[in-house]
Amino acid sequence: MLLEFKRVFKSYQIGKNKIPVLQDLDLFVNEGEFVSIMGTSGSGKSTLLHILGGLDTPDEGTYRFNARDMLSLSDEERSWIRGHWLGFVFQTFNLLSELDVVGNVSLPFTYRKTKPEKIASHVEHAIDRVGLLHRKGHRPFELSGGEMQRVAIARALAVNPKMILADEPTGNLDSRNSEHILDLFRELHQTGTSIILVSHDEKVAAVSERILQMEDGCLQ
């Protein structure tokens, strides 16, 4: 079992009101599994993904990832896991506009102890996998939305993570570009990477092996 998420609660305090977002949520994901999560807007999908990525912490519950108790780790340890085992893909791409494609894809290596010559080959390979070698030196504003998302995917897969967390990766893309991105996810899945994909779109969710519905703070 790669991921064990048990009895998780999360709520946000707004003024005096406590708004529950995740309520007694369980989630188990096997190594190499492709899971997609669907749900209405505001149902807590992003919140879940952030907790899974170690960027946020739940109020209650347990979370084990790759045999580590994620909730008891220090900031350093959790950052290490993000940098080595996890890759994020966001709806809004989240690329750094000052850096070119190579710079953006190299970003995770900033916080890893990888030899410079190895970094170059990892980065090159990742850019090649998303088919953007001819755009290596371009900066984000010179790329289309689809291309930007491919750069973001290259950044996520460059470190060869165990799991990729994608939050509506096709939300800002047209159907042709979406198709291309989904192809990439399929390919990634075939090479053994676990993927958790959040989407509104049933067609998008259909690429996964297992579709979960987010409802009332729980997964069905």
Binding site: G53, L55, D75, E76, S79, W80, R82, G83, H84, F88, N94, L95, L96, L107, P108, T110, Y111, R112, R155, V159
Partner: peptide, 16 residues
């Protein structure tokens, strides 16, 4: 802010 968030997401610690 956004840069900080992105860097944290790809593995930067608070110290970094």
């Amino acid at each position: 802010k956004r840069e900080i968030g992105i860097r944290r997401a790809v593995g930067a610690t608070r110290k970094d």
